[in-house]
């Protein structure tokens, strides 16, 4: 019995080496080569090895609306009518009275100046999108299993299976879903799933000029999200609903909801 133990340990160690060394090698090689390579290696993509999330730094957002615009272009979201996978809200907190919030055209064409008349305490922009909740109410209520959480933590809609009952739209506390006017199915942000699985950034993160949006993976120490979480006070939207969102906000005011 006693003699056996060190032997076992040695064997385990050797096994570990053979299992993990190629992993290390792969890691370094992927650091050296450009992400494009990863794009070509889509077949090797392991869905279960990722968990995506986004950080939004409210102090950095300048309300230029490039994210909302890029989202519409990348995902071919209808321009006519009110359909937004992501949008930007402007908050104006006056010295007295209720906060004023607006989002003209989702912020795509900027924010025309508002004459408040009174003293303004503070004012800021808040980008919004699907929170890809870990405990997603939309997934819970979908009667047929057309909306679901992927292994990598992204909430998607199967547009060939959705019956268009719109229960998920009612169940989403964040107003992140809409009924696609041509496809007649529920539609929403996918974190640009077709991009992130190729090692690219979501379109909104790609074009954000001030890095107000940070995209990364939970539980990866080298992810920019890790740094974001280290240096900021993080909140999520409507935490009381226990949806466990995976879009984290830094500097979100109590008025944001």
């Amino acid at each position: 019995m006693k003699n056996n133990k060190p032997q076992m340990a040695r064997r385990e160690f050797l096994e570990n080496c053979t299992r993990k060394l190629p992993g290390f090698f792969l890691l370094f090689s992927s650091l050296n080569t450009a992400n494009i390579l990863a794009a070509n290696e889509n077949d090797d993509y392991d869905h279960s090895a990722h968990e995506y999330a986004m950080g939004v730094s409210i102090h950095k957002c300048i309300g230029c609306g490039r994210c909302a615009d890029a989202c519409k272009r990348e995902n071919k979201v209808p321009r006519e009518g009110h359909y937004y996978r992501t949008w930007i809200e402007r908050y104006i907190i006056p010295a007295d009275g209720e906060a004023i919030v607006d989002s003209p055209d989702g912020g795509i064409h900027g924010f025309p100046e508002v004459k408040t008349g009174g003293d303004v305490l503070r004012s800021f922009f808040v980008p919004k999108l699907c929170n890809h909740c870990a405990n997603a109410p939309c997934v819970q209520v979908c009667p047929v299993g057309a909306t679901y959480s992927t292994e990598d933590g992204v909430v998607l809609v199967d547009d060939t299976y959705c019956v268009g009952c719109r229960y998920c739209i009612q169940a989403c506390p964040y107003g992140a879903r809409y009924l696609h006017p041509e496809k007649h199915v529920a539609d929403k942000c996918t974190f640009c799933y077709h991009r992130i699985t190729k090692g690219l950034l979501p379109a909104c993160v790609e074009v954000c000029p001030t890095q107000a949006r940070i995209f990364g993976e939970i539980g990866k120490r080298s992810s920019p999200l890790n740094r974001f979480a280290r240096f900021n006070d993080i909140t999520v939207l409507k935490p009381a609903l226990n949806t466990k969102p995976k879009v984290y906000y830094a500097g979100a005011d109590g008025e944001v909801r």
Binding site: E74, G145, Y148, T190
Partner: peptide, 18 residues
């Protein structure tokens, strides 16, 4: 899970613009 697993691949294969 309770969904069509092939859909994940279909969404991942959507066309890029950026």
């Amino acid at each position: 899970g309770h969904y069509r697993a092939d859909n994940t691949g279909e969404v991942a294969a959507l066309e890029l613009s950026y």
